[in-house]
Nucleic acid binder design. Structure first.
Length: 106
DNA sequence: TTGTTGACGCTCA
DNA sequence: CTGAGCGCCAACA
């Protein structure tokens, strides 16, 4: 299915140290209402290759809503902080600045 | 086949 | 500010 692949492609294009939102990706793919399916696609992203930096995708408010779905070994927050992103209380600090919008950046 | 679910996003009270 | 509800739609039991 191409939808998932499109999602993976966009996510892989997210620059290191930057983040984006489900809605932004959905909109970029032409279906702003697909935000929900983005999460589904990213779920499968764990078992595909090349791997997808799903940790760079957060909800519209910059919160790590999907952190619970990440492997316990390395949480979403850890990976993000590993890239220089600061996580405060489950949400990305300066999200507004770190936000990477495929619509305008691509 | 039908019903439920969900890593969202928005609106309304 | 917080909480509840709704639309959307693919995957899954």
């Amino acid at each position: 299915m191409s939808f998932n692949n499109d999602v993976f492609d966009v996510v892989r294009l997210i620059p290191k140290g930057r983040v984006t939102a489900y809605g932004a990706i959905a909109k970029y793919l032409g279906d702003a209402r697909a935000s929900r399916r983005i999460g589904w696609a990213l779920n499968k992203s764990f078992k595909i290759t090349p791997s997808v930096p799903a940790h760079r995708v957060v909800n519209r408010l910059g919160m790590l809503s999907g952190a619970l779905h990440f492997p316990p070994e390395m949480s979403m927050a850890e990976k993000l902080e590993n890239e220089g992103i600061v996580i405060k209380d489950g949400q990305v600090v300066e999200f507004k600045i770190l936000f990477w919008d495929p619509m305008t950046e691509l």
